[in-house]
Nucleic acid binder design. Structure first.
Lengths: 152, 152
DNA sequence: GCTTGACCTTGCCACCATGGCAAGGTTCAT
DNA sequence: ATGAACCTTGCCATGGTGGCAAGGTCAAGC
């Protein structure tokens, strides 16, 4: 859905009245930054924005909607790649919810393994820290462990 | 402790006998890769390695020990910066264990907030996925949520 | 002593998602 | 017409790692 290029000099004021937005405004409305929006465009996550005669990007409320979708997907920790897939599923009326669910479950599994990894680091370190005097003396089970000495 | 530069042609064989190691061997023994070891040297985490006449890096068993320390600290998720501090504490006989403990506890807190963040992503996504049919139909609460529609 | 293959050297680019800065152009209200 | 606020592109940086390329060195076998 390519917008007709806006040509008049008062294009932006006019555009605003009609519900068009600058990249800064689109950023505010979507919870992203202008930088991210340009980046997503370069990744072809979103179509190239229409431009004013002065080469400013122009966004519609439909675009804002897409940007919010991306912002929300990022907040779930999906990668750009996964978000690309999610966007195409979203746009595809004939998608099977199974595909979405599978992608989500794969991501949940990824999150789970990251969580488990961090938790095991946390547990091991907390265990060492618990036995550290934490005073003026130099002996420290944390350093001892890092140095490869047997515990105790 | 600068090693005298080894000059003879049979330097490496000789070095090996005396307990000196090439970067590849040091990598194997420490659980790192040659690339990482060079990187750590460039970060000044470890002192510049002695070189053979042919410019090969040479490591002693003390160096291997340090490299293992780094490898282990990485496995706890410490950043390079933090590892720099840990190394200097390790080397400092007059350190206070309090400093080590404080660093560890700060890192535990960092891990905790990352864990919490991932868990909240996980919980929200799992909640949506649970209500997704996951069949051939297109309706999907996951996409609906990303699209900003009210739940249900 | 020469060849060979394994290893080493440096240097650059890529990842991932983002931020920062610079130099310049546009918009729009005053 | 001026000026503030915004936009443009482009490059570099982050952090920690991997990959590749072009070249040099090592050690062993002949």
């Amino acid at each position: 859905m390519v917008m007709p290029a806006v040509k008049s000099r008062a294009e932006f004021a006019e555009a605003k009245e009609r519900g068009f937005y600058s990249i800064g405004r689109a950023a505010e409305l979507s919870g992203l930054t202008p930088k991210m929006i340009r980046h997503y465009e370069s990744l072809e996550l979103i179509p190239k924005a229409t431009r004013t005669a002065g080469d400013y990007r122009v966004y519609t409320s439909a675009d804002i909607h897409t940007l919010r979708f991306i912002q929300r997907a990022r907040s779930f920790g999906f990668s750009m790649d996964e978000i690309g897939t999610l966007l195409s599923l979203w746009r595809n009326q004939r998608r099977a919810s199974e595909q979405v669910k599978r992608l989500a479950q794969k991501h949940i599994a990824d999150l789970d393994s990251k969580i488990a990894e961090l938790q095991s680091m946390r547990a091991a370190l907390a265990d060492l820290a618990e036995h550290c005097h934490g005073d003026a003396r130099p002996d420290c089970p944390i350093l001892a462990d890092l140095a490869g000495l047997p515990p105790q």
